[in-house]
Design a binder for these strands. Structure first.
Lengths: 211, 211, 211, 211
DNA sequence: TATGAATGAGGCTTCATTCAT
DNA sequence: AATGAATGAAGCCTCATTCAT
């Protein structure tokens, strides 16, 4: 029996599959962000792509599997911004202030382009599964440690207060940046909101609110 | 032994009912905090009290009803701390610093005694129902406005920077306090964590991190 | 130990109990009529009397028990009307016509004072339990047989058609009377409706609609 | 053997779905008729078809939805019989008598093939939902009006009594026909029962029972 | 490889009945 | 005798997952 079936090119097939997989991931990211894990149905995600919902299971093991991958991609984006500067490159307060401005700006831009990240990373992910909880937790800790590297560098070079509680201050700074992100996301005039938050944030970190 | 008069039937009944109701509310608060709204089943709450799940419905209309009441009680506690000081009573930076210390301390204590509040109020409540969303939103706005009152008072009396962006700064301060609460809650040595966060928080707000 | 408890008078107690029982029966009759068997809850019936719903079970075995008794009382009232005349007392068509008018009038009055009877007896009762189904069925058959007695009497005395299918005609006559009842019940002006139905009904039975 | 071209996928799918839908509708019709709305569970209907109860919800929104459709189909069948003759086509009593015989015969056949219709339409449907109540009510009124059209025609042409109360008589005639249907349905020998009822019914309407 | 029909576990809610007070 | 708090069986509905086509 002669088979006239077009021979599959594995290369091409893999590319196609990878593309599809990526499309599903994007759609899931979107839907999870809007409705949360529990309220998102596999059919919801499939419908965004006009795809049969059975097809979903050809690319992902189950709902939890794709959520974990969605979380991974969100975490990666945050990590990239935080790691975008060299913690040891600064020698003066002004230089560090510049760094904070750039990191803050980058983070605000990220959260603006991905308004779902706060919800997704801060709370949505928690309680889905112990593994996921722990992973998120680890990223936040890491994130704090990276910021702390900047502060330790500043302390050692003398342009930050010698009695600065670097680990706590690092978390506080991160919190300010994330809160800024959350607020900018929800604001009507995002450009203005971003400018105001960045200014206030930097002023507070570097000079406090006193006159 | 002092004999207290046996209370009359209906009185006693009401007290019993109120007690039961309160027990269910507490149990629900606990379970909602740990598992979130969607993951919490009415049976879960009932099981905590070792009671049949049908009993639940003698005290609350439905799952949404009790969640709303749980939220109300959480919101009330937060509001009490925020409103515990007089925004116009301060005339110097030092006095205001004292106020922030007391409010921060009160909030940290509250979040310590009620570790669930951040999760409950920040994200868990959202998306359950439009009414609830709006209520939470209103409380956050109000909360920001109260803090802003302190800042406006400081500006008008000259002990805060004239160019301070009061509305943004108010939200930033609130965010710092809440982040402190979240972190203190999770720390092993809460007393130390509280002291460190309070110090860092006040230093940052009033002096920045520079040397 | 001297017991000062008032000695119960069994007589009086029984009377009280019987009164209560009768009150519950009336309330149940009302509620069953309005909402049907499935939609009526024991608590509904108790509430009508401002009585604790647990008390219900002191007077009736269960919900089915009281429904059966409600049905019995309804059936009894119908039977009384049907049996209110003497089937053999008539010797002329005119006399029988008078009987039908009186029975019809009595039934219309009954259904007017008890608008629930049609619903209760015709359909509500069916499907609750096989025993009940059968009982209702038996009553309808009996009811037809009683009416048939009148017709047989008429046939034997020659004032009704010799070829009259008495058993079918009896059921048809009963159906007309009941339909009249149902319609009178729902009409706005019951007196007029009763008069019109009675007239039409008798005319049809005794003369047809032709000119 | 004639080979029929294999239908295209979506076509076939639609047919299959429509078939399934229709099967469920039939099963529901049957179960609703036997047990009534409240006593019928979705699982009951599913079990008749040996299918999982979840499958039901792929074809109908909910239990009320399918009941409404069941009612619609029943109402449609009744309406067809009633509208099967031309009310104005008759000029003599004999002709009208022929019409009544045909309509009565058609209705008896319908109720024989669909023994559930009386229960379904007269009582079962009422009290489920206000919309349904109103729909049923409207059909009965309409049904009476159609029958009345025949009577008015007869009066105007002089072959029916001038003092005939057409609206009441119309309802009475309908009631007779329906009662006949109910009885024929339950009889052992349906052919005979049908003949006897039809004869008695027509005799009564057109001549009364007198000799 | 893609599809979507089918499934049933699981969650919410009601209510008849029991029983301690 | 009266009460009503407590219970859990049972019904409606959703949706993650499977599988035949």
């Amino acid at each position: 029996m002669t088979v006239t079936k077009k021979p599959s090119k594995p290369q091409e097939s893999n590319e196609r599959a990878e593309l599809r997989r990526s499309q599903i991931l994007d759609a899931a990211y979107k839907v999870f962000s809007e409705k949360g894990y529990r309220d998102t149905t596999v059919a919801d995600v499939a419908q965004v792509l006009g795809m049969g919902h059975g097809t979903f299971y050809r690319y992902f093991t189950n709902k939890h599997d794709i959520f974990e991958q969605v979380m991974n991609s969100a975490l990666l984006r945050v990590a990239k911004v935080i790691a975008s500067e060299d913690p040891k490159a600064t020698n003066t307060l002004a230089e560090y202030r510049g760094q904070v401005e750039r990191i803050g700006s980058g983070m605000l831009d990220l959260l603006d382009s991905d308004p779902a990240i706060p919800r997704l990373l801060f709370y949505e992910a928690m309680g889905i599964s112990p593994e996921l909880d722990e992973k998120i937790q680890r990223v936040w800790e890491l994130s704090g440690e990276v910021t702390e590297t900047y502060l330790i560098n500043g302390k050692s070079k003398g342009f930050l207060r010698a009695d600065l509680d670097t680990s706590v201050a690092a978390l506080a700074i991160n919190a300010l940046i994330f809160e800024g992100g959350r607020r900018v996301v929800r604001s009507a005039d995002k450009a203005t909101a971003k400018r105001r938050w960045l200014k206030t944030l930097v002023e507070m970190i570097f000079g406090g609110i006193g006159s």
